[in-house]
Design a binder for these strands. Sequence first.
RNA 1: GCCCCCAUCGUCUAGCGGAUAGGACGCCAGGUUCUCAUCCUGGUAACAGGGGUUCGAUUCCCCUUGGGGGUGCCA
Length: 458
Amino acid sequence: MFPRALALGYAAVPSSIGEVPDMSVRVRFAPSPTGHVHIGNMRAAIFNWLFARHGGGEFLLRIEDTDRERSTPEALRTIFDAMEWLGLDFDGEPFFQSAHLDAHRAAAGQLLRDGRAYRADKGGLGKGECVVFRMPPEDAVFTDGIRGELRKAAADMSDFVILRADDTPVFHLSNVVDDIAMGITHVIRGDDHIENTFRHVALFRALGAPPPRYAHLPMIVNAQGKPYSKRDGDAYVGDLRARGFHPEAVFNYLTLLGWSPGDDREKLARAEAVRLFTLDRVKSAPAQMDLRKMTHLNAQYVAGMPAADFAAAAREWAQSQAWWREPDETYFRGVCALMQSRTHLYSFIAEWGYFFADDFAYDEKTVRKLLRKEGAGAALRAASAALAETDFSEAAIEAALRAAEKERGIEEGRINQPVRAAATGLAHGAGLYETLALIGKDRVLRRLSRAAEELCGA
RNA sequence: GCCCCCAUCGUCUAGCGGAUAGGACGCCAGGUUCUCAUCCUGGUAACAGGGGUUCGAUUCCCCUUGGGGGUGCCA
């Protein structure tokens, strides 16, 4: 259902001379297939991936699908799509938690036999007896890879349910048993799990397994400084894609949320991030997403793409537009060359209609400001007449416009914007002469006449 | 309530006892220019507060405040 490996070629990159790849590193990304892929989860996936690839270890995927009520195939698909989009290739086959319920129950049985757990009816709605883990009497302590030593007094912790009365395992049990089964060496997860970790460490010990190393990532919060909720539309990876972000830019931006290479570099190639990533450089304070900064980074990525790559990406976006007409490839490349540096997000491509068809939309404000003006119609007619006599080269277009201005007594350069508005419907865009030359003489003259007739005032 | 975590410009961050507290986004001003974008130049703006420790605190410790998390037979 998913390519076994995305073959991106970033596996096992030793970070520096003398640093031996630690083949024993095994981390996992463990999402629940119950909806969208939350941005915070995906950032955790990225950090796990970076950590694994940096050390030459393995990055595993575990699907925590034991919540039968809420788990859906679509949500599972969404997880795979998001990971593939961001280039997070995982090692081996996905581990489906629902296939290991027996192992979870067996672990509960073992704890029961060892006296580390007991049966009890914790009240509630008379559901009967469940299995409760007995917290050891010692204080809980573990060394967090990001925050250092974390501890919690035994008195502040209480026993907790690991197996429900209906014989289904609770998150804590499944999580720990699966981590043991998968040979997980490092657990890198959100800091909302810190409290759980105190309990999980005790569970590992009770099951006779050494606890993995833990590292708790700071949360990503929304523009209000609050945790993301379903209400925050831009909190999902799929939305970022739909909004025109380039995956490498999103990857790069998310990498920088809570981590930095230690110097002023921000635009980091994936391989570079892999080489530089270490947990001790991860911050412990929460971070806010800044869509504008991410957009800026996106613009840099788009502007820096090889022309052919940009054309391919632009084509996909353009094809879904209502105005799309299959153009000559050379022409399409010409459009891309003109517009690449202006395409901060792929969604900007929605404005490219005027390059491909005559029935593009005129921006109302632009029409009002540039065309419904005294003398605008006459100016356009003069421009049209002058342009008609040229070979429509960029230089000839410029000369013709200057001549038209002279004829109508218009200040030099002032005819450009009305002409642009008439020919493209917009007040912004690439250089006017290049744009007109590319669109072509016939189309431009037709648009100027039409605009003079139908849009110009006075 | 109790417990845990966190705290540098509006935002993302650098800083790991001695610096004019640096960079980036945003914003403002200017240059380039037919517009927009790019690009270049300059500017704006921060160590939450109070105690310690120290010759010296953004940095180490404590308290307060603020924010977040946990306190489920959710994950």
